[in-house]
Amino acid sequence: MTDSGDGHSDRESRASAAPGAPAAPGAQDAPGTPAAPGAQDAPGAETEPDARFTLANERTFLAWNRTALALIVAGLGIVQLLPPFPGVPWGRHALGVPLIVLGAGVAVTAYVEWQRTQVAMRRGVAIPRSVLPQILAATITGVAVLSAAVLLVSALR
């Protein structure tokens, strides 16, 4: 039996060693996730998260990239497959090119956020909020307003 003082300090040092590390049950069962050696000795050390969290992060990244591809294809389809708007020769480019550029932006941002999330999980801190939904919503709203404008101009000519 240890005295209460020793037990207390021992527990405290242990608590500070792993601040909120995501220790999911079954983590030791997952293949390919060996605990980082020496991680529990240093406070604020980086520990690889449970493989499932890493995999979920990867799937989110892939899903955003498919969204990016869909935006690019939509933009290309508008430019190349739509008939020109009567009286608005720049209309298809004005609608399609922003979508293509947004697609590239989403792909790059998805990578940056994948990395940020991975670092946050490794440090055991809160996962930063994604800016991608705002970017996507803002640009799609903008393209919708622009389409309405192009259609109006085309109809009035």
């Binding site: 892939l62 990016a68 933009g75 430019v79 190349q80 293509i100 550029v101 792909a107 998805a110």
Partner: peptide, 21 residues
């Protein structure tokens, strides 16, 4: 491995812009 995807999507976007113009 993930950079492969990002770079490829960006490349597709670049090709699409060139094709658009």
């Amino acid at each position: 491995r993930l950079l492969v995807v990002t770079v490829t999507v960006t490349l597709v976007a670049a090709l699409a812009v060139v094709a658009a113009f």
